[in-house]
Design a binder for these strands. Structure first.
Lengths: 231, 231
DNA sequence: ATGCATAAATGATATATGTCAAATAAATTA
DNA sequence: TAATTTATTTGACATATATCATTTATGCAT
């Protein structure tokens, strides 16, 4: 199944990062000339935490998760990664180590682009620099909200929040295959898998959603939102 | 006590933000011409979450805390703010709202500088843009570590971590006045004030530190570090 | 299809942490 | 200084959540 390159050129890539629109023809050619595609099977690691970081990453197709490998092997899933979005941790500008790992949730086609290209573009193209700052700020903003939610909500609220996020941001649908295992849902919401199961069952019993194995169908979004917001 | 301006010019400000070193004379003059000083008493609010954001902030003297006002009035302290460091939330590049509040922990002298100046400097000065990206990345990196710590450590580990942080990063000493109340220490470590008291007592009983009201003296840093790392 | 590995579900129990009420201590104001 | 407020400490108890053991279901390879 791993295949040949799927993308001819960055310029008219169907999942082009929108910030590349700030680049000149020559600049985007530079990006294109310095990118490397690779294919990964489900479960394979694209980026390993703590290893020397030298590349930013884009998904051409498929889905991945970013996660932090924490205290005694306990993972903490930071987010779900989709095509069209820049994947570049703070390591690029901090300590040249990847701050988190990334692994494929499905078969994935990925483009790697060296940081040096980014650093060069930041210096020569103010519009691009600003758009990158916007991108990074948005990520910081979200992670900040997430931290508070994790800290202040109880289990049901946290899980409701994640389910809503899948519905609103990732699949844009009320019924979807949530790809993550119960274990992984726990790693996103900071609870053990048994608790995920129990709360999902509570949601089913109260008619908020149905969850047949990995297929989630939201039945009462208003209520789900209430649960998420009340904590 | 509120007084006159303490700072004549940014250029030789004793607590100048190091990234301003990337600016030209003309650019730093621009910053200087567009800054506004103000004095705040202990407890006063410098920045209010959700209000329209238009300024970055530096402390000329004193200490402040940044905090998120969360679910039913529950505060979550994000960090301790010191002179010489840029205080600019993601709101600047996201939604033009302050993402968090800032209030004075001591008497504080502050400089406000409009975002527009920053945005202009990013566009015209690539070195400055890159240094700002570094600054923001470092903050993201820290907040990211903090999130995982909060999620994966038990109370003792979380409190140990905060005490170490005060010792290593803020006061650079083993004995210091931790300025925060037990309530606030709880807001930093995500526990109730009663738990802070109990764990501090545990630390005292086991000879790790002494805590006479707000004066903390670390007696066994190795052990404290172990507690922090083991979780 | 059959068996094997992995994931999900369930129940009983243990533990961490929060809640509430009251007592003491410290800080502030009169 | 006394009076009053505010912060800290303590103990008894309630609750949320984790842990562990076991069963059931699901997916995958032969």
């Amino acid at each position: 199944m791993p295949g040949k390159n799927t993308i001819e050129t960055c310029e008219n890539c169907p999942v082009k990062w929108e910030n590349f629109n700030h680049l000149t023809q020559a600049e985007i050619k530079l990006v294109n000339d310095n990118r490397y595609e690779a294919t990964f099977k489900k479960g394979e690691i694209l980026i390993k935490q703590d290893s020397p970081s030298s590349n930013a990453l884009f998904l051409a197709s498929g889905m991945a998760k970013s996660y932090y490998e924490g205290i005694n092997g306990n993972n903490f899933i930071l987010g779900i990664l989709l095509p069209g979005r820049l994947i570049m941790g703070p390591g690029a500008f901090v300590n040249s180590r990847y701050a988190y790992s990334v692994s494929a949730l499905t078969q994935v086609q990925a483009c790697f682009i060296n940081f040096d290209i980014f650093r060069y573009l930041i210096k020569v193209n103010g519009e691009f620099a600003e758009s990158l700052l916007q991108d990074i700020s948005l990520k910081a903003f979200r992670s900040h909200i997430r931290m508070v939610n994790l800290a202040q909500k109880k289990m049901a609220g946290r899980l409701a929040e994640v389910v809503l996020n899948f519905s609103d941001e990732i699949f844009k649908a009320d019924e979807f295959d949530i790809i993550l295992s119960r274990q992984e849902l726990g790693e996103m919401t900071n609870m053990v898998k048994e608790s995920v199961v129990r709360i999902l069952k509570e949601f089913e019993d109260s008619g908020v959603l149905s969850a047949k194995s990995s297929v989630i169908k939201i039945l009462d979004k208003v209520k789900l939102r209430q649960i998420s917001e009340k904590g």
